[in-house]
Design a protein around this nucleic acid. Structure first.
Length: 548
DNA sequence: TGGCCAATACTG
DNA sequence: CAGTAT
DNA sequence: GCCA
């Protein structure tokens, strides 16, 4: 057994918000227990002898109180996850004072206030440089495990990276400091410059699959359709691996430039292995796939497929329906099961309409109407609204309408979404609400989401999402909601191989500890998609090029 | 043989 | 909390 | 199902 450095410590870890995940929490928990500590399982009942509360870096006090469902923070050390991570790493119980959440929080607040102030003063073209500056600063911060000193942000100075020795003061005991530095420099924390240089090298090899050059006159449509079918079947069977496998094979074939007449042509193509090759051979020779046919004979599968198309019905509910003996949508409509919730009832009622693809023109019309209403509610502030999803990627037909909004002034948007939805309902454009986030609780610096149904006077019911993000994370959200799913996956996977985690709110360094991963504070302030691509060291890809 | 994107929010 | 969705 |  390792040194029980956490002996007599009773520690509660809060997770699930502000970028600190349950996975990370579990890892830390396990390690603490391994090192002799006790962790609190139920946050609803904090024990009397609680010694430490571990909270995410960016927690606000109200968020903590809400999570704990208490009115006052407990009387114990409140620290960020770094305290535990570093202690575990160094097998030494580190002093709490350098990791106190309150200090971190205060520094953060001060910095934010300063940035806000600067932004207000600066012109738009200057803003770009400020962001650059902050980007460099945040990278240094990460390299030093957030041990930044109280130095002011020196915006007026040049863009040179700050001298680490002068500006960064490690507050830990000297021995420990050396250890941290050694470990970090040798493995995880390379400078942003070097990191980006590295990224550039294999940029193309990673992304050549998603160049978006799909043939317009789908020469190999029959093969693709067959494989799609197979993929759908595995979706129902919840075989995540095969779903991805087939999806990649489909992408590969879609971007294959020639008409496939012999499998010889496909030999050596990435993502098309032996088995897929065999299947394509069968399609070429017989025009069909015995695997698909065999699967189709299980009427169960067909029914599941049918039911899964009801909005709000997933694999579990679909299974249940089959077990109850439903065969068709009509049967369900005639006699709905008692376990259906409100959303599933809406999904059922609008089953056929929601399956219809939406012509581009209609997406545009609905988006414009909504944007106009939103602008009228913006009190003169500059509102940006972009319709994302397949529409932005240039598809002639779209599955749903995905509108992303932000205030250019960087201010809060609290309450706008619910008012907007109210208004849209009043004019009859929005007919149903499926989900809407509770903005009262979330306060500012967060994002709000509406999921619902919209309809033009003479049109069909359409699935629509409206999201409002703070300006700070807008570009990341834009990238994410523009997709495609495959493009996002490849980009995130790419980030992952570089020791990062990419999400709709930014890019975060992910520190590895043994085989597991911890997520740190975000780096890189990107205000446009171009900046994100630049950060990745990639050539900018237009939305149309991300379509697959 | 294991991993294949991640995080969050809502419903009931 | 499980299930579903984005 | 594919890949490392």
């Amino acid at each position: 057994m390792d040194t029980p450095i956490f002996q007599d410590k009773v520690i509660c870890i809060l997770c699930g918000f502000c970028g600190f995940t349950k996975v990370s929490k579990d890892i830390i928990s396990n390690n603490i227990e391994k090192l002799g500590g006790t962790t609190v399982k139920k946050i609803s009942q904090l024990p009397e002898n609680l010694t430490h509360l571990i909270v995410p870096y960016f927690s606000t006090e109200s968020k903590l109180l809400k999570t704990l469902k208490i009115s006052q923070l407990p009387d114990c050390k409140i620290v960020t996850q770094d305290w535990a991570i570093q202690s575990i790493k160094l097998k030494t119980l580190l002093p709490e004072d350098t990791f106190l959440w309150k200090c971190y929080f205060q520094r953060q607040q001060e910095k934010m206030a300063e940035v806000d102030e600067l932004k207000r003063k600066s012109q738009i073209d200057e803003e770009y440089h400020i962001n650059k500056q902050l980007k460099l600063q945040s990278n240094i911060k990460i390299e030093e495990n957030f041990e930044e000193n109280e130095n002011q942000i020196k915006i007026e100075e040049n863009l040179e990276i700050k001298n680490e020795e002068n500006d960064i003061k490690i507050k830990l005991d000297p021995d420990i400091k050396i250890e941290i530095k050694q470990e970090d420099e040798s493995s995880r924390f390379i400078s942003d410059k070097r990191r980006r240089a590295n990224w550039k090298e294999d940029e193309l090899s990673k992304f050549k699959f998603y160049t978006g050059k799909q043939s317009i006159d789908n020469k190999n449509d029959h093969i693709i359709q067959m494989l799609e079918e197979l993929k759908n079947n595995y979706t129902i069977l919840k075989d995540k691996g095969r779903i991805i496998g087939y999806q990649k094979a489909i992408s590969a074939i879609r971007s294959f430039p020639e008409k496939i007449t012999s499998i010889e042509q496909l030999k050596g193509v990435n993502q098309i292995g032996k088995q897929t090759l065999q299947k394509i051979k069968e399609i070429l020779e017989t025009g069909s796939l015995s695997r698909v046919e065999a699967m189709d004979e299980h009427e169960r599968l067909g029914q599941l497929k049918l039911f899964l198309n009801i909005w709000g019905v997933g694999t579990e509910a679909a299974e249940k329906l089959v077990r109850k003996g439903y065969k068709t949508i009509e049967m369900i409509k005639a006699n709905p099961p008692d376990f259906f919730n409100e959303n599933q009832k809406i999904g059922l009622a609008l089953y056929d309409e929601l399956l219809e693809k939406i012509p581009r023109e209609e997406v545009k019309e609905i988006s414009e109407k909504i944007t106009k209403v939103a602008e009228s509610l913006a009190n003169g502030r500059q509102l940006t609204a972009i319709t994302c999803g397949s529409y932005r990627r240039g598809r002639p037909l779209c599955g749903d309408i995905d509108i992303l909004m932000t205030f250019e002034d960087g201010g809060a948007h609290t309450g706008l979404l619910s008012i907007l939805v109210e208004e849209l309902k009043k004019i009859g454009l929005v007919t149903h609400t499926l989900v809407i986030t509770d903005e009262e609780i979330k306060k500012k610096h967060e994002n709000s989401t509406f999921e619902g149904i919209a309809k033009l006077e003479n049109g069909l019911h359409r699935r629509i999402d409206i999201k409002i993000y703070p300006r700070k994370t807008y570009a990341w959200a834009l990238l994410y909601f523009t997709g495609s799913a495959m493009f996002n996956r490849s980009m995130r996977l790419f980030a992952k191989t570089k020791g990062f985690r990419l999400s709709d709110e930014g890019i975060f360094p992910a520190i590895r500890y043994k085989t597991e991963t911890f997520t740190c504070a975000p780096i890189a302030d990107c205000y446009t998609e171009e900046e994100i691509f630049e950060f990745f060291g990639m050539a900018y890809k237009a939305p149309e090029e991300r379509d697959m």
